[in-house]
Every structure is written in structure tokens, then in C-alpha cells.
Design a protein around this nucleic acid. Sequence first.
DNA 1: ACAAAAACGAGAGCAGTGCTCTTGCCCGGG
DNA 2: CCCGGGCAAGAGCACTGCTCTCGTTTTTGT
Lengths: 230, 230
Amino acid sequence: MSTAHGARARARIEVTAAIKDEARRQLAAQGAARLSLRAVARELGMVSSALYRYFPSRDDLLTALIIDAYDSLGENAEAAHEATASPFERWITVCEAVRGWALDHPHEYALIYGSPVPGYTAPDATVPAAARVGLLLIGIARDAHQGAALDRPAPADDLRPEAERMAADLAPDLPPEVVTALVAAWAQLYGLVGFELFGQFNRVVEDRETFFRHAVGQLARGVGLVPGPR
Amino acid sequence: MSTAHGARARARIEVTAAIKDEARRQLAAQGAARLSLRAVARELGMVSSALYRYFPSRDDLLTALIIDAYDSLGENAEAAHEATASPFERWITVCEAVRGWALDHPHEYALIYGSPVPGYTAPDATVPAAARVGLLLIGIARDAHQGAALDRPAPADDLRPEAERMAADLAPDLPPEVVTALVAAWAQLYGLVGFELFGQFNRVVEDRETFFRHAVGQLARGVGLVPGPR
DNA sequence: ACAAAAACGAGAGCAGTGCTCTTGCCCGGG
DNA sequence: CCCGGGCAAGAGCACTGCTCTCGTTTTTGT
């Protein structure tokens, strides 16, 4: 049991945390592909085989780090979210929080949103953590909608069935065309952050903050959010 | 000299091509991180050290594959480009060609647009190949502009200096606000493709083709392209 | 045409990796 | 008290990228 009381149990969660901390250090320093179980064990003064008592494989360690990264990003975005006022401004703030976290934790961002590492496929355990930012954006749109401050985008006939299906799954209280616009904006936000982070904007975009703010403003308009009070 | 006439020189380019072919096979099958120099050499019936006469390191092999991938993607997009008529339709077609190529070559797409592999940083040699798709999109906007079929997006005051700088670098004949919208759309296209490819749309978007077509249509409108003749 | 030079393939070897298996120790619950 | 299970340690396997040396073959310069 992980909730046992013994000193052994406490030692176990301490060692587990120490392993994750050291692994996160190496991840931040060199990236996921250079994260080495043996190096983690070496740094912690233990032998590599001992580490397998805590994480059955390298992929399991990476999975733990992925979930932590999603949570860290989500917390960061949620914290930024509470501060400001109008939905439009909150949208911008959340997007900028995502970008800021990505620039501060490039390797962790690459781990969760970049191309999947070696033969690794993320297990279902990561799904709830991964959804946090998306739910935040949906919540902003919902607030604007309830405050009647949403300029609903024009519906498209051919997208209609899919839009209704997505809305039923994600946000039944929002107009379907807003839901599809939200999902698209979410992916496009990831594109903007990824291009900057992975160097595709080198020698192209110079004033990245201004460019980003403007681009995510357009994203907000695409889902129907307009600058203004309330 | 690499342009010498001898049988030796011809053999060299043949062996080089064979290495790249086998490497591309392994890349497509297992991804970049599992591409092994020794396995390539083994499959080709040569000893691993001999391979270093052709590529001084694993990263150099990867660089060659990256350039080839950019060119393959670029050719694919350019081929699709010539077929259709109006700029708006050409925009859609090029975007769908990019998506189609990505779905057909997921590991190659991840190699060029995903998170950079291990400690790898792309050398300058890849820049021209990487720019092909971007130039294509710029060309479409240029055609529409010259045909007076561009609804210029509203300029933004705070982005003005950066927009003018970017326009001077990339497309001096286009209005600055169109250039920034183009760059943003380019990054957002990458976001849409990446999210689908890397599984972020699982259990969210079902009818991917329709969703994608609609989203890139919105992207086109964002740069001022409107559906219509000519 | 002949010798010097460059290119090449093969093999051994180094340092590193993930992971498994066996051997003992030592702590905690019966 | 004692003995079973969790634990660390070590050896070992099958890999990896990369280097160096050693003959052999081909190209090149005189």
C-alpha cells in the first residue's frame, strides 16, 4: 500500500521524489532523449538496478515527468487566469502564461507537445492532466457566452454534424461553432508557441512578445471574444 | 573532388544514396531516435566503421534526412499548388497537401517540425529547404494581392514596426499586416497538423478532414484571402 | 609508367546505455 | 523473537556512437 504508515513507506516516497527531482533536473538540462537512468542513479549515489524498484522502466519515469509537466503548465495557466478581468483579457493572459511556461521549460514543453520520444506512446493516465489548459480556454469562452459577450462565429454547413458532436462531448452549453473554433485555436496556440520554441521564427520574427500577443488576440476574435469590459 | 569521373566517385555517391535510403527506411519504420548507424550498416552488409567514411556522425546523417524531408514536403506542396485556380482554393490545396504529406510520413514530419532530436540543432544548410512551403504561401498571397483580390487585414498599431521589418525581409511588395498574418498562419497550420499527428485530437476531433479544411479556410481569411473566382 | 597519396573496408576496442538476474542484508509485522 | 519481503549491490547481456589501426585498392602527380 502506498498509504502505509511505516518508516519504509515514507522512505520509499522520499526516494521516489528524489529520483523524479534528479530526473527533472537532467530533463531540463539536456532534454528527454539524453535522460539516462544510470546517470540519475549515479547522481543519487545508488546503483542503477536499485532504481528499477521505483520505476519499472525508463518510460514509466518519463510518464511521471510528463504528468508533472502537464500539471505544472496547467497550474501556471490557472494561476495567471484568476488575475484579470474581461474574458478577452483573460484569454490573452492564459495564452501568454502558456508561452512563458514553455520558454521557461523548453525541454518539458517538448516532452509533452513535441514529437513523441523514441517508441513512446503516452498512456491514458496523462489525459486528465493534459486537458487542463483546454478546459481553461473553454471556461473563458463559457463565461463570455453567459455574459452575452460572445460574437458567435459564422456557422459552416459542412462542419455542422462534427461541430455538434464535439460540442456534445466538450461543452454542451456552448454554440457548436464556438467549440470547433476553440479546438482550432487551441491547436494554433500550440503552433505559435512551438514555432518560436523550436527555432522556426529565427531570423523571421524579432519582437516575439508583440507578435504573439497580436496573434493570440486574433485567435480570441476567431472564437468570438472581443476586447471590451466585463 | 566530388565531381570526379572515376569509378570510385560513382561508387561513392551510390553508397551514399544506399545509406540514406536504408536510413530513411528505418526512420519511417521506427522514428528518428531509434535510427541506428550500426543497424543501417548491418543491413547494407558493411561494417559500422565504414559508414563513417560517408557521414562523419549520426547527426550528419540526420541532417541529410532532414533536408530531404523538407524538399519532399516542399515538392509535394508545390505539385499540389499548380493544379487549382483561385488563390483561396490554392491556399486550401497547399495546406491539405502539407497535412497529407505529414500523415504519410509521420516520423519525417516529426523530425523536421517536432521537438529537435537529442542534442541536435539544425545547421544553416537546412534553411533554404525549410523555407519552400513558406515561400509558396507568400506567393499565393502575392498573386491575390496583384489581382486586387486581397482583403487586407486591419493593421495593428503596436505591431506596426515589427510588421514593417518583417515585410522588408520577406515580401516587400505585400502590405505589412498581410506578412505578419502570413507568418502567424504558417505557424498555426503547423499547430493544426501537429496536434492531429501527435494524437492530441484523439477522442476530440473525429472528422479530421472537414475540421482541417474549415480551419485552414479561416486561416486564409485571416490573411485576407476570400473564396471566389480568379 | 611509376611512385606517392588519398580513399576505403575490416576489425578491435572504449565508454556509455536500458534492463535482468542473482546474491546477500536488514528492517518490521506476525 | 524470527523470518519473509523489500531493498541495494554487483555482474552480465545486448545494444549504441565513435575512434584508431592496419592492410588493400584506387586515384593522382610527376
